[in-house]
Write a protein that binds this DNA or RNA. Structure first.
Lengths: 129, 129
DNA sequence: TTCGTTGCAAATGTTTTGCACCTGA
DNA sequence: TCAGGTGCAAAACATTTGCAACGAA
């Protein structure tokens, strides 16, 4: 039986993630938090990000490049990864019909979650030709 | 300008991937190929898998665990990752409406590709209680 | 002969972990 | 008090790369 205790480091990590709209890697969060807690270790950042993801307070985002990113937005939305600038952009449901995004009816497993990621060139990179 | 030459190692890697329905990691392919070419190096396996993926002969598959997997099926299909047995299962389009799987119309980027992955418990693990 | 490919080994980069000390409840 | 959390440093992994030798065209 595990009861989590409060920790200011974890709180700072959660806060940091809440207030940014990009999808930072563990290292990016580490860099930020060090301005508040100069002695925090990268290990602590990883431990807390993993812990928060396990609690569904934040979400892991995986892309082609193999680097783990984190997202504080836990409501359903998709991602677009720009192959040129490598940014990860949130996509709002928009015109998508989410009720259809489910495996075929013959599938016997239980779906708990899904991740939909698009790859291509983002608007900015496209116009910057 | 690069012109690829034939190599039996690359051919063996491609063959291996074609004839299996799981989604092996580079290391799993390496283990297999070593039974044919005992001296092949892991670096060669990585180089060729990356090369083949670049040619769209095979596809990279990313999941939560951060380990890169490869898939010889390049026709559109999704994946289901079992959180219990960690298997990656192919999902056939089935009842899904693929034309709807696109970002909202207000999105300005160019979509080249997408990956849709479901997470949960597969039928087998579910029935094995 | 030429230049892409390989094997080897070392390097890189990300993420995890062991351990003694610290801290919140 | 005491289990969980932290910092530090080392370890564990996955993946990439430099280089001399090899092999396909």
């Amino acid at each position: 039986m595990s009861a989590y205790k409060f920790s200011r480091q974890r709180e700072a990590i959660r806060e940091n993630l809440m207030h940014r709209k990009d999808h930072p890697t563990a290292d990016m969060v580490y860099t930020d938090i060090r301005q508040i807690y100069p002695n925090i270790s990268l290990g602590t950042v990883y431990r807390n990000l993993t812990l928060l993801a396990g609690q569904n307070v934040i979400r892991k985002v995986v892309t082609d490049d193999g680097i783990l990113r984190f997202d504080a937005t836990t409501t359903p939305h998709d991602h677009f990864v720009c192959r040129r600038c490598n940014r990860v952009i949130d996509l709002q449901p928009g015109s998508r019909d989410y009720t259809r995004v489910l495996p075929g009816e013959d599938f016997e497993g239980d779906v708990e979650d899904y991740q939909l990621t698009f790859y291509g060139v983002c608007g900015e990179c496209k116009h910057a030709q």
